[in-house]
Design a protein around this nucleic acid. Structure first.
Lengths: 224, 224
DNA sequence: AGCCATATTGTCCTTTAGGACAATAGCCGG
DNA sequence: CCGGCTATTGTCCTAAAGGACAATATGGCT
């Protein structure tokens, strides 16, 4: 019976500095770190890697970085970590074969979720981008197709969170990511008239004058 | 301390026949089964469901089935099982709020993967469809730009600044602070028709689909 | 002088947003 | 059982947003 190679199980973090953010190690204490140029095809760190996390160097084209890494690691799956996530970049990276794309400052718990999904054979895409992909491709090729998920709920909004009902909260967050009323309606399985009713109630409770203002409040950009 | 409802943990399979394929039960031995019409809003089986698996009735429009189910289960996540998977159906279902879409005859192991990913907050989409989404959307976005965007896609608004004229920049920043077109017009001493012209040009250059999206781009609210 | 980019403005049109007023239904606590 | 709250949906309406197509004027450059 032929002996089997050990199953790769490590997380290999490749970053411009060769150093890790604390939450990466919190999520994966035995992670291996490297700079891009340090990687060698066939090296132990590459062979033992179940997942490779590529922290983008902001001064270089993102897809080039992915392509360069892939040449060294072969078919191992890559999850891209962006310090400043961008939908355009994400799309380009997925087209080029990345299996995940998330914020470099994501929590340890979130990183684990991402790893789990990708190792299960899935892709990890931010919900905002996902909705964009689905809606854009599904013939609803309207201009108004996008949501984005803020990394953290800004404090001013979180302080006001208790003013909203659960449904209002759901609508508010979705709206603040850029969704239109029709899109919110489809996502929540209700009519856009219902969404409008919630939106109006939210405006009143949070003192917003329109949806743009609401988004600024929720994302922490409005002096309220 | 307020009393908490028990955390839903069950898998609820809804199928036209009310019966389960053996691999469903293999994956989730304690799954609950039901026919669509048997479901009642607020019933125990609905309340205790962490995930709802909707096996499509091929004689009915798939989105209608999803919408009908959603009305009964509220915000619980739905994974759609199709006996004959179809990309068009999948897109429509995701647009309508489904969180997963896979073959009804998938293996127990695969069903578990799907469940895990969706429960982690992700979406489960077949790889073929995923690739289609990514490629199609990336291509469409690339073609949409009025002027050719440099190969290096800037990662932040400040990096995109050079794409805008001085006036456009002025309009963009004012808009991102929540101003309406009329307000911007008054501030800059021009008509709101001029503002609209600038705004449209800005949308095209920065890839924004509406003013809310533009504000998100400018304020640096990126996807995760 | 001619060309180009930019700024400004117009008309026409559809879609979306959002307010007002109203209604039904379900859930929960008193 | 009842009242209050929430969710949902309807009709009607105005205002704003945004796209398409078109036009003029100005300044800089060749």
């Amino acid at each position: 019976m032929p002996r089997r190679a050990p199953v790769p199980s490590q997380h290999l973090f490749v970053s411009p500095s060769g150093e890790a953010l604390s939450r990466w190690l919190e999520a994966f204490p035995r992670a291996v770190l490297a700079k891009p140029k340090e990687l060698r095809k066939g090296s132990e760190s590459v062979k033992n890697a179940a997942l490779v996390w590529l922290h983008l160097d902001q001064s270089l084209p993102c897809v080039d970085q992915l392509v360069a890494i892939k040449k060294k690691i072969g078919t191992t799956r890559v999850i891209v970590l962006a310090s400043i996530p961008d939908n355009e970049d994400a799309l380009a990276l997925f087209s080029a074969g990345a299996r995940g794309y998330c914020n470099a400052h994501a929590t340890a718990a979130n990183l684990k979720q991402v790893a789990s999904a990708v190792q299960a054979g899935g892709l990890w895409i931010g919900e905002a981008l996902m909705q964009r992909l689905v809606v854009a491709t599904h013939g609803a090729l309207s201009r108004k197709t996008l949501r984005q998920v803020p990394e953290k709920t800004p404090q001013s909004f979180s302080e006001k969170l208790h003013l909203l009902t659960a449904r209002e909260n759901e609508v508010a967050k979705t709206l603040a990511n850029g969704a239109s009323n029709k899109e919110i309606a489809r996502m929540l399985g209700i009519t856009d008239r219902t969404v409008k009713a919630h939106v109006s109630a939210i405006f009143q409770k949070l003192g917003a004058r329109d949806r743009l203002h609401l988004a600024l409040i929720i994302n922490g950009h409005s002096p309220t």
